[in-house]
């Protein structure tokens, strides 16, 4: 089990990733945010990805509008159809708000959480990341592991693949890559628990 300090660090990172997936609005998507984002990428050896995003943003007439248009196309409404709805049920039940969303909500409740009335559907990517952040804050690494395995990774891998393939703006490709990297289980990648 990670130490309580480490657990708080994990909670903060989940929360930051949730923020990255919000609709790009000027109240948070600004130079300050981007500097933190580049800094984060730099720490993780993603300088090239950072440069690519920086280029797109510097070359844009209105980078915020570009991001908003792309966010809408990818996650909200696109022609002929939205590319990658950020809801688990869409991938698991082939419909919005299916039993998978119900199972997700049941898991939140089991852990003592409920949806706020202004919230989106329970299986929205942002809420799932927030939930993981809350579990990490409570140092519930067993709960975190179970949620990731049963309710997050099964759909996220498909969502991730779609965004990676279809996104026109590097920002979204990089954000979904970060989330993927951070939520992957070690055994999927050949990382083995210490055998000593």
């Amino acid at each position: 089990m990670p130490s309580p300090d480490t657990s708080q660090d994990i909670a903060t990172l989940y929360r930051f990733l949730a923020q990255c997936m919000h609709y790009p609005d000027s109240d948070w998507m600004n130079e300050d945010f981007l500097n933190v984002f580049y800094n984060l990428l730099g720490t993780l050896g993603g300088i090239e990805e950072g440069v690519e995003i920086r280029k797109s943003i510097n070359n844009a007439e209105d980078y915020l509008e570009d991001l908003q248009v792309e966010y809408t196309r990818l996650f909200i409404n696109g022609v002929p159809h939205v590319v990658a709805p950020p809801y688990g049920s869409v991938y698991m039940d082939k419909s919005l708000q299916g039993t998978f969303a119900g199972n997700t909500l049941a898991f939140y409740r089991e852990k003592g959480f409920a949806m706020d009335q202004n919230a989106d559907l329970p299986d929205h990517l942002i809420h799932e990341l927030e939930f993981l952040s809350l579990l990490a804050e409570e140092n519930d690494s067993a709960g975190e592991k179970e949620f990731l395995k049963k309710l997050f990774r099964p759909w996220y891998t498909q969502f991730h693949a779609r965004v990676t393939k279809e996104a026109h703006h590097p920002y979204f490709r990089v954000v979904v890559m970060l989330i993927d990297f951070f939520t992957k289980e070690e055994d999927e990648d050949g990382f083995q628990p210490n055998e000593a």
Binding site: P2, D9, T12, L13, F16, N35, V36, E186, D187
Partner: peptide
């Protein structure tokens, strides 16, 4: 086990996350 890399990654990006907190992002 599975918490290892998450923990390591979270610790590595701690300074960046501190800035995120400082500017009220989180």
């Amino acid at each position: 086990g599975s918490v290892k890399r998450r923990a390591m990654m979270a610790s590595m990006v701690k300074p960046a996350m501190k800035k995120a907190k400082d500017i009220g992002l989180l």
